[in-house]
Amino acid sequence: MTNRLDADAIAFGTLQQAAKWFALLRSDSISDSDRISWQKWLSANAEHRRAWARVEAVSQQFETFTPEPEQSAAVNALDAASRARKQRRRALKMLTLLCTTGAVSWSVGQLEPVQRSWLAFSSDYSTAVGETRDVMLADGSQVWLNTASALNARYQADLRRLVLLGGEILIETAKDPAVPTRPFVVDTAQGRLRALGTRFTVRQLDGITQLSVYKGAVEITPVAASGSAQIIDAGQQVLFSADGIEIPSAVDPANEAWAKGVLFADDLTLAEFVVELSRYHKGYLACAPEVAGLRVVGAYPLHDMQQTFAMLETALPVTVKATFPWWVSIQAR
């Protein structure tokens, strides 16, 4: 669950250094010379300060930690000149994102904690990071919510409508008991999907929606291109934006494995695998550049992170290091 809204990339090694300093400053064994060394490291360059801020931000989501006065003073003094500029850039970035998508259009797991809480509170159904759940709707249709997802159900006399606010869902539609039967649709920020007797997944990505169809068919109508509806048949998956639909490709069976509590890797790079796994991890999860290209194959349990980490250590020449429960890195053994 790393924050991908920050455009300023921070090197993996620098983030690990920041995490180690964070751990040392919290320990009982810290000395005055350690504090001086930390302050020198912090003042060495701006990336160190960004890395420290990232670790602090992640830590504050999971535990209470009040930095010592000299820690706060050092960071404040070093960052005072740049903080206003960073806040303006972030505000503009968020505003642009909201304006261009017209709704929440990124994974709920990537939102700040307050935003996630608000979205969960304002939706009919939601899941926390690392949680999945299944829901039986009023017409007998079944919906599974993936990690960090939010959904509204708006059934009307003439329409069965779901609104995906963020995250991912798997849907298996049932025959409508109403007469006449009502269409079953799913709305995302990018358009409307109309189910044609089907089983399919819908995932809300950054400014784009991913549809995978396993049974039946689904009709897509992009929100800004209402005259360009297209039917996607079983065995196909596709990405679409508000303006159009990309060329469909063969469906990836792994796209629905999460509903069974499994993350299926079919020759993924470790970097790709970690990106998917991080959706279910509460905190920071990343791999070192030198092991990012290793290939991952197999089925990994989503609801037992320790077992998944142990399987990775068995299958690959890596070690999983947890500086904190919420700060985990995968490095070369």
Rank of each mutant, 00 (worst) to 15 (best):
T132L: 03
N45F: 08
M305K: 03
A44S: 12
C99D: 15
W21H: 01
A254L: 03
I30V: 15
I30Y: 09
L15S: 07
L268D: 08
M94R: 13
M136C: 07
F65H: 15
Y300P: 01
A332W: 09
F65T: 12
S228T: 14
E56H: 13
K86N: 11
G216A: 04
S107K: 06
S105G: 05
T314I: 11
E47G: 10
I232A: 08
Q230A: 13
R49I: 12
Q230G: 08
W38Q: 03
C287I: 06
A332H: 14
A7R: 12
L42H: 02
R26L: 07
V108Y: 02
S29Y: 13
I247T: 15
T64F: 15
S122W: 03
W41M: 06
A53G: 09
H303V: 04
A44R: 11
W21F: 08
R88A: 14
E219V: 05
R182V: 15
R89K: 13
E131A: 12
R295I: 10
D139K: 02
L239F: 10
L270S: 02
Y125R: 03
Q39W: 11
L137N: 01
S72W: 12
V328G: 01
P248T: 13
G197E: 04
E276P: 03
A73G: 12
R160N: 11
L42C: 07
K93R: 10
L294I: 13
E290K: 09
A265Q: 01
E290F: 08
S59L: 07
A81N: 14
A53N: 11
Q39E: 14
V320F: 06
L42Y: 06
A11W: 09
A51P: 05
G216I: 10
Q210M: 04
T314G: 06
V291L: 05
T66P: 04
L92G: 13
S241H: 05
L24A: 06
V297Q: 12
L165I: 04
A229N: 07
W52Q: 11
R54M: 11
L151V: 09
W327E: 04
W106C: 08
D252I: 08
R49L: 11
F240N: 00
Q190L: 02
A254Q: 04
S228M: 14
V251Q: 00
S59H: 12
T127M: 02
F65A: 11
I171M: 03
T221Q: 01
Q87M: 13
N255R: 02
V320D: 02
N3P: 06
A18S: 01
A150Y: 01
D79N: 11
A81K: 15
I245T: 06
A265S: 02
